[in-house]
């Protein structure tokens, strides 16, 4: 079911979607966006990839199984909570770094949490949708 139009457009759209998803994640703290939205977008990008190039190449590009991506996301979110525990403020207490980078949001534990959500949601989208594609190819 590989379509030439799909492949050509996917080549352009997938990277753009991925970059856009990261952009959404970064600006999420101040403007619409955030981990959930970014993760959904990124997941959708990989789904599109799988549609266009087939599952095998998507897995090759990912290099890691989606279930593990979910685990990593959960771990990152949890670690952001542990930071507060280590600094002695209590679980999930916010902690911010001092330095600012202009294109990044304020770095700190909430941002790390958001990154975790992003990764997790991305993995979930893949886990949920891939098995449905799998049987076609």
């Amino acid at each position: 079911m590989k379509s030439f139009i799909l492949i050509i457009s996917a080549r352009v759209i997938v990277p753009v979607m991925l970059i856009f998803s990261v952009f959404l994640l970064f600006r999420g703290h101040n403007l619409p966006g955030g981990g959930f939205i970014g993760g959904l977008t990124a997941g959708a990008a990989f789904v599109l990839h799988a549609f266009a190039f087939g599952m095998e190449s998507t897995f090759k590009a990912l290099r890691i199984r989606p279930v593990k991506i979910i685990a990593i996301g959960l771990l990152l979110s949890f670690l952001s909570g542990v930071i507060g525990l280590v600094t002695g403020e209590g679980l999930f207490k916010g902690y911010w770094l001092d330095w600012d980078v202009s294109f990044l949001p304020k770095l700190g534990s909430p941002f790390l949490f958001d990154v975790g959500v992003y990764v997790l949601v991305m993995g979930i989208v893949m886990v949920i949708i891939f098995p449905n594609i799998q049987e076609d190819s």
Partner: peptide
Amino acid sequence: KGKNIVNVILVDFRV
């Protein structure tokens, strides 16, 4: 330190 209140609630206040 966030301006999107929804996101701040999600990742900080009600994390």
